[in-house]
């Protein structure tokens, strides 16, 4: 991207991306008014946010034409991020703090 014409063309793309982000923000708010189940509403909101994030990362941050090392750093970050976001699921699934069925059974036997 060196010639004046190419830069001009690139500038137009940036304006279009900016306009798309504005429209998608309206869509996010509009979609939040739909009467959806909590899980579905979360999915829709994060889907639109991901599309917007993808546009910013790919075009404004030039991730659509970056060097391999940057992708490597980002893949590593994404893996760590997934582990981080999985922590809440582990805390829910581990059963810590829940009443054990065995204890429940024993207390019934005593009575």
């Amino acid at each position: 991207m060196n010639s004046f014409e190419e830069i001009k063309k690139q500038q137009k793309i940036y304006w279009v991306i900016g306009a798309s982000l504005f429209v998608l923000t309206f869509v996010t708010v509009w979609a939040s008014n739909w009467e959806l189940a909590a899980g579905m509403a979360l999915f829709v909101a994060l889907l639109i946010a991901s599309i917007k994030g993808g546009l910013v990362a790919n075009y404004f941050m030039h991730l659509n034409h970056e060097k391999q090392l940057v992708y490597f750093v980002l893949i590593l970050t994404v893996l760590c991020f997934i582990i981080l976001m999985a922590v809440p699921l582990i805390t829910i699934k581990d059963g810590v703090g829940e009443k054990s069925p065995l204890i429940h059974q024993e207390s019934n036997d005593v009575h």
């Binding site: 939040s32 994030g53 910013v56 404004f60």
Partner: peptide
């Protein structure tokens, strides 16, 4: 700066809309 914008793109629905 774009990263700061990116974070807000996710903060907005998380904090304001859900």
């Amino acid at each position: 700066w774009h990263f700061v914008d990116l974070v807000w793109i996710f903060l907005f629905p998380t904090i304001y809309l859900m």
